[in-house]
Design a protein around this nucleic acid. Structure first.
Length: 861
DNA sequence: TTGGCTGCCTTTTTT
DNA sequence: AGGCAGCCAA
């Protein structure tokens, strides 16, 4: 029986700890104090999930399991009570001494493992932990993605399962190469089983933790399954000899290693006393096993997720992980965070009314104390151009009302949908940025150079070697390469070794000199790799391999690619700078391999963001446009017949809606060009699921007036009709011309920036990334004009552009659809058009092409 | 061996 | 519409 003083202290201790988390609501606080045992936090969208995670980890590190506990590290005295009271009143931090008494078995920062899905989420978590706990302590918490956590484990312990600790990571492109090679050797018909579907089936096996042997043992009955099994076996063997792992392997092999090796397992179980998993609804079977193995010691595992936001089933996520959590982890507690701090209640109502149509939910209904807000807007457009124009209109309105560009996001189902919006924004001079789509590190030229680096790091890497041996062309064709591969296989050595001894093989006599000079170059590069700083070395690779010369020989396209390589060198430099002595070539490649586009998304940049709904998960914006709300687009055609897929699609819709804080703009179009064909889609069934009471409907004037006719002269300068004439057929054909050349290929993905000066080519994201700042990513912050200038065809072949060359002169006053009024400060003639620099009253200096900018000249009255 | 061309095919989401 | 593979000609 505790004495009175002890009792008083304990009560006071609880009160004190609670006061440290006073900014949380009671349910959130409960989650923070539940530190021991399995815990499932069902966190609705915008319910302060990350805040809870950060505070919970802080609590574990600071106070351990003190809250609600009766344990004391030593007998307490009246003085301790007075001391604590004083601390509370002064609102100062407790002394070290006090903390020792307050805490019960606090964890060291490195005892905590927090797993997220993206590097960005991990970085954010770390950033917030640093803010709360200080740089040192916060920085020592293990916060990483599943994949990078596994890489770290395997770099230490891969040898336990027969891989070199220095294994290479194969991305999906490498994967495809290996598979194709296997197809060739086994003479498999790629019509019968497309390589991509073989990959996805293999990937599916790995997600379910089935090895090639497991699959073979199940004696697949039909021929296709048998074939897949055969391919899987060959594929796994190939990767093993190359000392390589693909993305799925990282998880798969980690789990296998931990299952097999008690020593390693216990090491990690001891090390990670507390495990937190974010986005648990998106975990696969393999990832579930990983979590269970790691948490096997203490069972202190906390998973956070929202079954309504599970949108990665196609990639192996199994929603059962979250639905069965309480069964698998016996004695688990469940806490529901249902108060939403993000959106207006109208937006939440819309989200709730959509998701309500799903079965098999854990069930939860979000509510908010935020105001009702405006209704959810739905606009019916005539075409995708009209849709884009409407978005631009609204953004313009919002800007004039004081919003920033970066407050806006345009979300869509598939990447292809970004095109019309991009085109329109580019023309209108709205700075935008695309997240996703073709990733910077997926570009051919970047991957080629990275492959050179990879072969230098790992001479056994035949896949990468094949990629670069004749790129640029060196007279080493596929026949020669196949011969080399054959010889290498026969001797059980890497291809590179055969190449080094090319002269000794009669079969290679004809290409011996080409092979010799290739090998010589390789040797030289290897030597340089140890003497030169990393970034200089990368530059040297681009030069010495002849890659630079090859690109220079091409014209515009080569130039853009060369620029990308310049950025590659930049990111090598960034990496080198950030890692100092630790920096290695293989370290760089590893970071590159695990980076995703969303990781380099930087909300500081003042641009509109365009991305898929998938990419937008976890983000929020005051103004969200959800475009393409049509049956056949969203939900897509492919999912209409499967109820399960339909539900996933609906969850995706729910995710999209709940990204919006203030305003949600839904739009559908009567007709849309899709896969090269114009289609007329009915409005999305999701639209009809939204309570009409919270919807505000409008439609394009083009539809009301029967379409064409009005304002045929478009928005060109000096053309009467001005703003109202701005919709209509003109836009249609303009757009087509525009598509012909502008911004279609390399380098222009990021749209263009204001010339305010703050937008430097350092690339977005460098700041938020803990590990590398590969922000250089998707396209430099280029300006539209240079991008467009290259495509003179755009203007010269356009059907007479149907309007006068816009005659602007410095000093002219203009009215721009989006940016409002401004004054022309500079005009540069360019490819039949003019680049106009305008000082706007509200938004500063912007550049835009005269013929395509939605603006009119006016004179002061 | 190379490079250019045609004609095919594919269209979701990504660590 | 666009990318890619495979074919063919040099």
């Amino acid at each position: 029986m505790p004495d009175a003083i002890t009792q008083e202290y304990l009560t006071l201790r609880d009160r004190y700890i609670e006061s440290c988390f006073a900014n949380l609501n009671p349910v959130q606080r409960q989650a923070v104090f539940t530190t021991e045992g399995p815990l499932l936090i069902l966190a609705g969208a915008g319910s302060g999930k990350t805040t809870v995670l950060v505070n919970r980890i802080a609590n574990i590190i600071r106070f351990g399991k003190a809250h609600g506990s009766a344990v004391l590290s030593r007998p307490v005295t009246r003085a301790d009570i007075d001391h604590l009271k004083a601390t509370m009143e002064s609102r100062r931090a407790p002394s070290q001494d006090q903390l020792r008494l307050l805490a019960v078995e606090p964890a060291r920062p490195w005892n905590v493992l927090a797993i997220t899905f993206t590097n960005k989420a991990a970085g954010e978590l770390k950033e917030r932990l640093k803010n709360m706990l200080g740089d040192t302590v916060g920085g020592d918490v293990n916060a990483s993605t599943f994949h990078s956590a596994c890489v770290r484990i395997l770099r230490r312990d891969a040898e336990r399962i027969g891989f070199p600790n220095s294994f290479t990571i194969y991305d999906s492109d490498d994967q495809l190469r290996v598979i194709k090679q296997i197809y060739k050797e086994l003479m498999i018909d790629d019509k019968f089983l497309p390589p991509k579907s073989a990959i996805s089936r293999i990937s599916g096996f790995k997600d379910k933790l089935l090895s090639a042997a497991d699959v073979a043992a199940e004696a697949p009955s039909d021929t296709k399954a048998a074939l897949v099994s055969k391919i899987y076996t060959a594929y796994a063997a190939r990767l093993r000899t190359a000392g390589a792992m693909d993305f799925d392997d990282l998880i798969f092999h980690t789990v296998r290693m931990l299952q097999k090796d008690a020593e390693a397992r216990e090491y990690y179980q001891k090390k990670f006393r507390y495990i937190v998993v974010d986005e648990y609804q998106d975990t696969s079977v393999a990832q579930f096993h990983l979590v269970r193995l790691l948490a096997g010691g203490t069972r202190n595992v906390c998973v956070v997720g929202d079954d309504d936001q599970s949108i990665y089933k196609f990639r192996g996520a199994t929603i059962e992980n979250i639905l069965n959590f309480e069964e698998v982890f016996k004695g688990a507690r469940t806490i529901r965070l249902e108060q939403n701090y993000r959106s207006t209640s109208n937006i939440l109502d819309a989200a709730n009314s959509v998701i309500r149509n799903n079965n098999g939910r854990k069930g939860k209904t979000l509510w908010t104390e935020n105001g009702t807000g405006d209704k959810v807007h739905h606009y019916t457009a005539a075409s995708e151009q009209d849709e884009a124009s409407h978005i631009a209109d609204i953004i313009g309105q919002n800007l004039r009302a004081g919003a920033r560009l970066r407050d806006h996001a345009v979300l869509y189902r598939m990447n292809a949908q970004s095109n019309p919006v991009e085109t329109y924004f580019a023309r209108a001079g709205i700075p935008y940025r695309i997240v996703g789509g073709q990733r910077f590190f997926d570009r051919k030229e970047v991957k080629d150079i990275n492959s050179y680096l990879a072969v230098i790091v790992n001479p056994r890497d035949d896949v990468r070697l094949r990629r670069i041996i004749n790129e640029p062309a060196r007279k080493i064709g596929p026949t020669t390469v196949d011969k080399i591969a054959e010889l290498a296989a026969g001797r059980g050595v890497p291809m590179l070794q055969i190449i080094s001894e090319a002269a000794t093989y009669p079969a290679l006599s004809r290409s011996a000199s080409a092979l010799n000079s290739f090998y010589e170059m390789y040797r030289e590069l290897c030597d340089l790799s140890v003497t030169l700083p990393l970034d200089e070395f990368a530059g040297e690779v681009i030069r010495k391999t002849g890659y630079e010369a090859m690109l220079k020989a091409q014209k515009e396209e080569g130039e853009a690619r060369l620029e990308n390589l310049g950025q590659l060198v930049n990111s090598v430099k960034t990496y080198a700078d950030q890692n100092g002595e630790e920096a290695t070539l293989s370290g760089f490649l590893e970071e590159v391999a695990l980076i995703a586009d969303i990781d380099s998304y930087d909300e500081e940049n003042d641009t509109v963001t365009l991305m898929t709904i998938h990419s937008a998960k976890g983000l929020e914006f005051p103004y969200v446009f959800l475009i393409g709300m049509e049956d056949g687009v969203f939900p897509g055609d492919l999912v209409r017949y499967s109820e399960e897929d339909m539900e996933e699609e609906r969850r995706l819709c729910y995710v999209g809606i709940t990204r919006a804080k203030k305003e949600l703009y839904l739009s559908s179009s009567r007709s849309r060009m899709i896969f090269g064909q114009t289609r007329r889609n009915p409005p999305s069934c999701f639209l009809s699921e939204i309570d009409p009471a919270v919807m505000d409907e409008s439609e394009s004037p083009e539809l009301a007036s029967g379409g064409f006719g009005a304002g045929y002269g478009s928005f060109g300068a000096g053309v009467p009709g001005g703003r109202s004439g701005y919709s209509g057929a003109s836009r249609g054909y303009l757009n087509r011309e525009y598509n012909a050349g502008f911004g279609s290929r390399y380098g222009s993905r990021s749209g263009f920036a204001a010339t305010g000066g703050h937008e430097s080519p350092r690339g977005p994201g460098a700041r938020t990334l803990p590990s590398g700042g590969f922000g250089a990513g998707y396209g430099s912050s280029r300006q539209s004009a240079p991008a467009g200038a290259g495509s003179s065809t755009l203007l010269s072949t356009a059907p007479a552009a149907k309007k006068p060359a816009a005659g602007y002169a410095p000093g002219d006053l203009v009215d721009h659809k989006v940016f409002g009024r401004g004054k022309v400060i500079k005009v540069t003639p360019m490819a039949g058009d003019s680049l106009v620099e305008i000082q706007f009253d509200r938004v500063g200096v912007k550049k835009t092409l005269a013929n395509y900018a939605p603006m009119t000249k006016f004179t002061e009255t």
